[in-house]
Design a protein around this nucleic acid. Structure first.
Lengths: 216, 216, 216, 216
DNA sequence: TATGAATGAGAATTCATTCAT
DNA sequence: TATGAATGAATTCTCATTCAT
């Protein structure tokens, strides 16, 4: 049991925001590891080092908590994207950077993939109810449109590329590999997550994307 | 009552097999719609129109049933792949056909995507225990290797392409779009599943893959 | 715990109807003693000597069980009313019999009063959803109308009496005394339930009703 | 912040009393609508617009609050009764006035009925513990005794009427109709609370009571 | 093979109440 | 006097699974 007596001193506090964040963090891990259905409120309380009842105090219900986790998860990737500054780069470099960013972000934040899977299993019913849903839309799509246009204008990129399609493709190239790493590793009998394998995957992805956007 | 015990043996067997298949089909739907954790044995019994107890009679446990569903699902896609006959085609046509097949199969069998997600959420623990696990490996990888070599030899394809990477990329281009269609639709505010959108996606995917494999 | 091993032999059976009735009986007592909100499913299971889970197996939910209890309770009083045969009596005797029956039924079935109170606390939301709700209507109102008419025709009863009003009045004369016996006893400091007190109440009620219906 | 500690004492006291009353009023509504078991301290705090913790500050516990509500409720009806001045009237008029008062008070104070039901469900355990319990006793019983005696002496009333019985009967005639208005309306399929229906009920009640007390 | 009845171990959620400020 | 934070003990309900026939 995670009663207050077992909590480390720095958490044994009446700091609401800290408690809220601890729960959110614990929930992100739990939902990410077990899915919405498999996650246990008990377990989230324990991970956060708080009384289970507090989860309800702060988030109303399991679904409310899941929604809060989803929101934070989306917010974080959008924040990371904002720090990319692709517009300062040459078009081809910008595309390379985007592919690398996508790959690395998914690699470093596996919870993003599983949470997305959970939400899609539930047909996006949680995010669909969000008031600011369109803000979850990646600003990268706009940025990418600009990059593609710049590349086309300077003659290095082919024309007629839909930035939404390309954005989805870049994501897909990274996503499938990482999201299905367990079954792929088991079936191919090879470790897809070794440093070498990871490096090869990023190279491959970059080549695929550049092979497509670059004018021959 | 005229129970099966009064029927000739082969009829009894046929009924048994029919019942087994009904359960398997119902389970495929249930697991696909709700995930492993969210699926209900009760619900599977109802969908199959059989007593819940029979589920245990035929499949021992929920996990055993999930494993059987996974096996059948993999078997079916492998069977479909075998009917492709890519070796009879020109290399570029073969790649086009592979991309189209992947897209259409995922489109027609959404359960494949969600079941794979579920299994990966559980770190492939079910398929990992399969005795014939390597048979789940797609023969297409070998076929694709041959196609790439043929293309390279005839000068239409670039060299140095890893067939495993390419296979995963083709899958990923289709998978991400379809697996995340709910969140993507909600966030982009556009219907990704309209006939037009689907057709555009396939075109895009094909261009990306051909852009990569074709020698400039 | 009320596991099967603690159940008496005659209940340790797979007789569905008997189990159902045992639960219904236990629930009637529990709801009657503690109200809908105060009743405990655990406690009902224990009283019935069955696994708590069975309550849900047979009645879906606490509210479903409450509804079943209400239905049975109404059915029972209607059945008892049917056995009265008031139409065979002289009008004044019939009224006397009706008053006595009402008093005695409430006295012998205190659960009827408390269940009715609970249902009214919930604004009749359970019975309101019953398909055959009008069948809960007492046939006595029709019978009483006939008695009043016979009495009026033979000159012993006054005219213009609304049978619904009179039916409610007779019920009310008994109901208030019995339903509020605890507070009344506490406040008046006298035992309202002694045989003498009970007999006096019935006499009083009878006089009040006859004083009203009889022509002076 | 300018807290109450900076205010003069009598203002602080007035605020405290106001808060207490707000809680009491909110609790009356909550207990009345949901019963003792169904009432929520949270909800009472919200209704009163005060922090839930204050409820405990002023009333110790949920039961303590319920008791305070009961006391106030009884006090109010007794106060209203005191304003009746039945002794100034002719006996028959006094009885008419008492019936009308009872009916109208119950009609205007539905919380009295439900609170009484709650307290009886709990076998009067709260009021039983009150030190001044006999003060809850209606002075009307004494008054009624006097009226009955006056009426008998002047030859308009019959003799031998127990004022306690009559008091309970008058209450019962109103109580049952109003307390069970939801089930009765549902079952009879007619609106018992329309102005016409209410007026008819009062007429009926008055006739019943007068029919009983008046000498023929 | 088939089924209705029964169960124990959880699971989410509720709620009165107390703590710390 | 007032309040937000925190808690433990229920309580309803769920669910995979087993029993008995």
């Amino acid at each position: 049991m995670a009663t207050s007596s077992t909590r480390p001193a720095e958490l044994r506090t009446r700091d609401a925001e800290r408690t809220r964040q601890a729960i959110l963090q614990a929930a992100t891990e739990e939902f990410s590891e077990r899915g919405l259905g498999g996650a246990r409120i008990d377990s989230i309380g324990e991970r956060a080092g708080v009384n289970k009842r507090l989860v309800y105090y702060y988030f109303e219900s399991k679904e409310g908590l899941f929604l809060a986790v989803l929101e934070q998860t989306y917010r974080r990737i959008r924040d990371a994207e904002k720090r990319l500054h692709l517009t300062d780069m040459e078009p081809a470099d910008a595309v390379r950077a985007l592919v690398a960013f996508t790959w690395n972000y998914y690699l470093d934040h596996p919870e993003f993939l599983t949470l997305l899977n959970s939400e899609n299993l539930h047909r996006a019913k949680h995010v669909a109810g969000l008031p600011h849903i369109r803000e979850l839309n990646s600003p990268l799509v706009q940025t990418l449109a600009g990059i593609l246009e710049r590349g086309r204008a300077s003659g290095v990129f082919r024309g007629g590329i839909d930035p939404v399609q390309l954005y989805i493709s870049i994501a897909g190239l990274a996503y499938f590999y990482l999201s299905n790493k367990h079954t792929l590793s088991a079936i191919f009998g090879r470790n897809l997550m070794s440093p070498k394998a990871r490096s090869e995957r990023l190279s491959h992805m970059t080549e695929v994307v550049l092979g497509y956007v670059l004018r021959e």
